[in-house]
Amino acid sequence: MLIINCPYCGARPELEFAYGGQAHIDRPVQPADLNDEDWTGYLYLRENTKGIHAERWRHLHGCARFFNALRDTRTDHFLATYKVGEKAPEVTRP
C-alpha cells in the first residue's frame, strides 16, 4: 500500500484516497467553441507515461479534497504533492 502525502492532512495510507486520473487537464471554458477533434482530445486522450506522471488524487476518506501529485510510474514513488491550482514543482528522480 502506498503512502500518500495529502497537502492538507499529511502522510496517509493509500486506502484513504481515490485516484482521479491525469492532472492539469482544464475543462474548456466554452466547450461549444471546440471542434470535434479537439473535444475528443479533451474527452479521451491521456498520457501513458513511464516515469514522472502528474495526476489527481482525492483524499476521499479524509479531508475529501482533490490535489495533484507527481508519481514515478516505474516505482510508484511519490515525488511531490501540491494543491489544485498550483503549478507542478520541479522534481528529479531520487
Partner: peptide
C-alpha cells in the same frame, strides 16, 4: 443553456 456537463458531446456525430 450555453453549457452543461456532457452538452458538447451530444453534438458529436
Amino acid at each position: 443553456k450555453p453549457d452543461f456537463v456532457g452538452k458538447r458531446s451530444l453534438q458529436r456525430p
